[in-house]
């Protein structure tokens, strides 16, 4: 699996995700600067976390208009898989590749801790190594992760199985107690209609090695390798 990882001014998890990819593929991904309108063809594009453009105007709003994102949109529309994490999720929603938006956390605080997630489906490139309803534990680190979409959009997401992960309690109960940021319907990650683009606020790339507190994110990358190699 050949992967490209985008780098914007203010990205800060691009090295983490590059290491996670190298761990499961044995090869370093291509790092692509935001000003590059063209880059080598890859099997996967990753939009990493951070604070692109200092979160000016709205998180992800500036990055969504960068030359590299015009190319990412073009390739995503041709079916090239895109994994968007944290600030990456904010960027792809601003770019219109995923529905909804990420608002300021309901409690207004930056939240940085492990959370539990319920996997909604195993039927995707990104989640095929998990089982539906499986509970996994991976970290979040964000101040704007409060997912919001209109009622019509939510209905469409639910009807078409486009919710990828929901925040939950350790026992899998999807309730307010397990929701770290106020996200509507506890949504932590969503797919596009074709399930070739996935965005999520938690950081699977920071849960790939046991010495860093857990490995539950590793299966996401291994599943991508299975599907795309």
């Amino acid at each position: 699996m050949k992967a490209a990882v985008l780098v914007f001014p203010g990205s800060n998890r691009e090295v983490d995700v590059a290491q996670a990819i190298e761990l499961v593929t044995g090869r370093k991904p291509q790092m692509v600067w935001h000003g590059d309108g063209d880059f080598e063809k890859t099997d996967l594009i990753v939009v990493p976390g951070g604070f692109s453009y200092g979160d000016y105007l709205r998180c992800g709003a500036m990055a969504a208009q960068s030359p590299v994102m015009a190319e990412v949109k073009r390739r995503a529309n041709q079916g090239v898989p895109v994994l968007a994490i944290c600030n990456g999720f904010q960027i792809v929603t601003e770019a219109g590749l995923l529905p909804g938006t990420l608002m300021r956390n309901a409690h207004l605080k930056f939240v940085c801790r492990d959370v539990h997630l319920k996997v909604e489906t195993s039927q995707s490139l990104f989640t095929n190594r998990y089982q539906a309803d499986q509970v996994i534990r991976i970290p979040v680190a964000h101040a704007e992760g409060n997912y919001f979409a209109s009622e019509d959009t939510l209905k469409q997401l639910e009807d078409r199985g486009q919710v990828a992960f929901r925040y939950c309690a350790p026992d899998g109960a999807v309730d307010a107690g397990g929701n770290p940021n106020g996200s509507i319907r506890n949504i932590a990650g969503v797919f596009n209609e074709t399930k070739t683009v996935m965005g999520l606020m938690p950081h699977p790339e920071n849960a790939v090695e046991p010495m860093f507190g857990g490995c539950d994110g590793r299966a996401l990358f291994e599943g991508l390798v299975d599907a795309l190699s």
Binding site: L57, R58, A61, Q65, T93, E94, G100, T101, M103, F148, A149, S150
Partner: peptide, 8 residues
């Protein structure tokens, strides 16, 4: 295109 996010 940029100044507002019309979702919210």
């Amino acid at each position: 295109k940029l100044l507002a996010n019309t979702v919210i």
